[in-house]
Design a protein around this nucleic acid. Structure first.
Lengths: 114, 114
DNA sequence: TATCGATGCTACTTTTTCGGTAGCGATAGT
DNA sequence: ACTATCGCTACCGAAAAAGTAGCATCGATA
């Protein structure tokens, strides 16, 4: 699994710049999705797995540990939950929902006419 | 490489929901980084490669084509550029820069005391 | 207490993606 | 003609993800 703490270089793409460390984590498959699914409330391991379309447990387990290591998720009452930091991040990411709708709409238009 | 258009299912993680298609693209290594590096202005293939820490040209080429396919980047005067859509996306992502700074700071604090 | 189902998770194998290097065809400068 | 740079492809080994099986644990039920 290796260390994932942003202050000690993450997967080669980092250069000490925080946002790069963030890109490194968010740029890893499922990490964004997992946190997104956790917005609505806590989910158990298997529930989270199901919500993510049946990711393999090995991958899910890896992502969970990584996200825990950087304090974006934690364990609570009903299973895994977003930490305060994780919640903040999701709040910042929320505007993307509206943007993405516009985006696919634009793509649809161009694939019709283009 | 396969198709990446969000309206026709992207890499298995999509379910017709736009944000999932976005996650699928942003969750792929280098895509976020590439767009981020393009914020400041156009970059040539090799310049972009250098900015991203020397990603292999094969990967870079793949990402470029993918991002072009979904109209987040395009080709302009001095090389590759963000499209309007791409620019908008980066604008939405900009708040993450400040957040990520706080985040690494919080991580540092806990790794000291914890 | 034996059985059952659900849970969190590990182990193993196959497939996909990424990283690293070499190099080609094209263009431009000298 | 020689060299340098450009965008890009090809190939190969390494790493990550997908897919499947299964184990240990726990609570409920019989």
């Amino acid at each position: 699994m290796s260390s994932v703490l942003p202050n000690q270089s993450v997967r080669g793409s980092t250069s000490g710049v925080p946002i790069m460390a963030l890109f490194d984590i968010l740029g890893r498959k499922w990490n964004m999705r997992i946190m997104w699914e956790l917005r609505a409330g806590p989910l158990t391991f298997r529930a989270l797995q199901a919500q993510c379309g049946g990711v393999s447990p090995s991958v899910m387990n890896g992502r969970i540990k990584q996200l825990q290591a950087v304090q974006l998720i934690g364990v609570g009452e009903g299973g895994y939950v977003l930490t305060d930091l994780g919640q903040e991040l999701m709040d910042r990411l929320d505007p993307l929902r509206a943007w993405s709708a516009d985006w696919v709409e634009a793509l649809d238009r161009t694939s019709e006419s283009d």
